[in-house]
Design a protein around this nucleic acid. Structure first.
Lengths: 190, 190
DNA sequence: TTTCGACCATAAAACGGATTTGGTCGAGGA
DNA sequence: TCCTCGACCAAATCCGTTTTATGGTCGAAA
């Protein structure tokens, strides 16, 4: 039954938010999900599998949110801008929600790497398409798309930095200003 | 006598490179510096003080190297480009040399923060001056200098990222391409 | 097919004694 | 007065051992 999986997932999420992944025990999850510990092993291969599922779900929601943001905008610039903006704000939300995980960041779980890589190719695809679209529309000057995308990715990494060191910054403003400069750098000149 | 301080510093550096700061003991330093352990306390307040001095010296060398790089270039663009390039390459060298320290990165020593902050204001000053110079020479369009400097700083953070996660990247190429885009974004249009 | 209690191997914590380590002090040398 | 160091100390760290907690299995039963 799928409702059981749901119970396990949501119990785990609550506990993770409070204690982090490593500190959360299977016994606690079972108690919160109101079922025997063994039962959970009928639905999930192991503890990491639960975590992986959570990450997968959140990751899918994230992607969908980004796609929506792009579709709500018109010009290529606006699409990219909204992409970056939405990405930063959502990431901030996430990093706030899963604050406890930041501490465990060092002992990285292998499957996170997989998700991360998948996300990067998703992002790469999206940005490439948008840049290309801009070039087709004679808005951006023809250029090496891979390079431009790579530069945007680097800029995004720089924008992410404050999140990482838990420093308060106006991500929305910074994102906007950064993208404006980059756009001026790749737009067709009048 | 200053030669003694020198001996202590250099002994400590060698040991740090090999074992890291925490694993290096005062006894080992004393042995390598060929003097009694107590003697070292005549020259330095404590173990951290030695470390702080090393960081200070390296930091000064770093700054000087950056200043030299700037002075060897002519146009504001070239100066900024050489600044960023030199910064990245030196940082890479440093992070390679003090590899052992990367592991201790988490337990951050308070005085490192001080050095870091000082460096940031040094960097801010330099970049501000260069942008301003470019505006005076009618090379860059008049703009909010603080914003532009902040964006360059963010871009630098993004460029630094591969160093942090120990991922191999062509820093020199990336720096160049990133700055080229930013320059196009702030240059006066023909 | 689904649930669970009993059970297991191992990992993590708790412990406590031995050792190491950063740092002090006063005596003594130049 | 400047400098050096051996003897010493309190606190931190190490390390082997025991205890406890934890992730995961299995077979019975619903």
């Amino acid at each position: 039954m799928d409702e059981k999986k749901e119970r396990i997932i949501s119990a785990t999420k609550e506990l993770i938010v409070q204690y982090g992944f490593k500190k959360t025990t299977m016994d606690e999850i079972a108690a919160k999900a109101r079922m025997g510990k063994s039962t959970m092993y009928y639905y999930f291969k192991n503890k990491e599998d639960i975590f992986a599922e959570i990450v997968r779900i959140d990751s899918d929601l994230f992607r969908q949110k980004l796609i929506d943001a792009i579709q709500a905008a018109y010009s290529p610039q606006d699409k990219i801008m909204q992409y970056v903006r939405t990405r930063m704000l959502h990431l901030k939300e996430l990093s706030n929600y899963y604050k406890t995980l930041t501490n465990e960041y060092l002992d990285h779980y292998f499957f996170i790497e997989k998700v991360r890589e998948d996300f990067y190719s998703f992002e790469n695809k999206i940005l490439s398409d948008l840049i290309n679209e801009g070039i087709q529309q004679n808005i951006f000057t023809p250029c090496d798309i891979d390079v431009v995308v790579h530069m945007i990715a680097i800029a995004i990494k720089g924008l992410e930095y404050p999140l990482f060191i838990q420093k308060e910054q106006d991500l929305e403003r910074d994102s906007k200003q950064m993208m404006e400069i980059i756009f001026k750098g790749i737009e067709v000149r009048a």
